[in-house]
Simulated assay, not measured.
Amino acid sequence: MTSVTEFLLNRSSQPRLTAPAPDRATLEKAFACAARAPDHALLRPWRYLVIEGEGLEQLGNLFASTCPNNADESEIEKLRRAPLRAPMIVVGIVSPSEHPKVPEVEQLLSAGTGMSFLELALQEAGFGVMWRTGPIAYHPAVREGLGLSEHESIIGFLYTGTVAMEKPRVPRPDVHEFVSDWPPERP
């Protein structure tokens, strides 16, 4: 196996992150990796927002603003504190275009692959990452607050920073559980 394969087999999400976050040179290289995602017709159907420092508090306030008026104060506070779980968050955004040969789903897959490449590049640089979504990623107030256009969607919040504490390894399924041959062999 190559070093890339070994790296992929050992990849894991890290929920406990602390400062420092990736520096600008590391981020630039990681975004260059993200731009290597397969991209039919070179549409570049992605963009990213980097949020750190005071921006994390503003993002927390934006998250908290999505709570209904009758929400419990602890629920509001949980959303307000959520972005503070890492020193940096990269918001992945799919920004599809109309194209006669490239359906929107292919553009979404391209943007998701770019986000995954970004995640892997940051991990290879020694940082921990956690890709988060949940209902907050699809809330209209969050989309609007982050300045997304009507045709854009959030594909994830990539929390990143220095790993504070390694999490235990997660068991992975056996390949035979999700791979089969087609057409199936006849008995």
Score class of each variant (00 low, 15 high):
residue 32 A to N: 01
residue 32 A to T: 05
residue 33 C to P: 06
residue 34 A to W: 03
residue 35 A to D: 15
residue 35 A to Q: 15
residue 36 R to Y: 03
residue 36 R to A: 08
residue 38 P to G: 02
residue 38 P to R: 03
residue 38 P to H: 00
residue 41 A to D: 03
residue 43 L to C: 00
residue 44 R to Y: 14
residue 44 R to W: 13
residue 48 Y to Q: 05
residue 49 L to K: 15
residue 50 V to D: 08
residue 50 V to N: 06
residue 51 I to G: 04
residue 53 G to L: 11
residue 54 E to H: 08
residue 55 G to L: 04
residue 55 G to H: 00
residue 58 Q to E: 15
residue 60 G to W: 06
residue 61 N to G: 12
residue 61 N to E: 08
residue 62 L to F: 08
residue 62 L to V: 11
residue 63 F to M: 02
residue 63 F to S: 02
residue 64 A to I: 14
residue 64 A to N: 14
residue 66 T to Q: 03
residue 66 T to M: 03
residue 66 T to K: 06
residue 68 P to Y: 07
residue 68 P to R: 13
residue 71 A to H: 02
residue 71 A to Y: 01
residue 71 A to F: 01
residue 72 D to F: 03
residue 73 E to M: 11
residue 74 S to E: 15
residue 75 E to C: 06
residue 75 E to L: 09
residue 76 I to K: 09
residue 76 I to Y: 03
residue 76 I to W: 01
residue 76 I to M: 07
residue 79 L to P: 08
residue 79 L to G: 07
residue 79 L to H: 07
residue 83 P to M: 06
residue 84 L to N: 11
residue 85 R to G: 14
residue 86 A to P: 13
residue 87 P to A: 07
residue 87 P to L: 08
residue 89 I to T: 05
residue 89 I to S: 01
residue 90 V to H: 04
residue 90 V to E: 07
residue 91 V to H: 00
residue 92 G to D: 04
residue 92 G to M: 07
residue 92 G to W: 03
residue 94 V to L: 05
residue 94 V to H: 05
residue 95 S to M: 13
residue 96 P to M: 10
residue 98 E to L: 08
residue 98 E to M: 09
residue 100 P to W: 07
residue 100 P to E: 14
residue 101 K to H: 00
residue 101 K to C: 02
residue 103 P to V: 10
residue 106 E to K: 13
residue 106 E to M: 13
residue 108 L to V: 10
residue 108 L to W: 05
residue 108 L to I: 10
residue 109 L to Y: 13
residue 110 S to R: 09
residue 110 S to K: 10
residue 111 A to Y: 06
residue 111 A to G: 13
residue 112 G to A: 05
residue 112 G to D: 02
residue 112 G to Q: 02
residue 114 G to D: 05
residue 114 G to M: 06
residue 115 M to A: 04
residue 115 M to G: 01
residue 116 S to G: 14
residue 116 S to D: 12
residue 116 S to T: 13
residue 117 F to K: 10
residue 117 F to P: 08
residue 117 F to E: 11
residue 118 L to D: 04
residue 118 L to I: 04
residue 118 L to H: 00
residue 119 E to W: 06
residue 120 L to S: 15
residue 120 L to R: 14
residue 121 A to H: 08
residue 122 L to K: 00
residue 123 Q to C: 03
residue 123 Q to W: 01
residue 124 E to L: 03
residue 125 A to T: 11
residue 129 V to T: 11
residue 130 M to W: 10
residue 131 W to Q: 14
residue 131 W to T: 14
residue 132 R to E: 12
residue 133 T to I: 05
residue 134 G to N: 12
residue 135 P to F: 10
residue 137 A to Y: 01
residue 140 P to G: 06
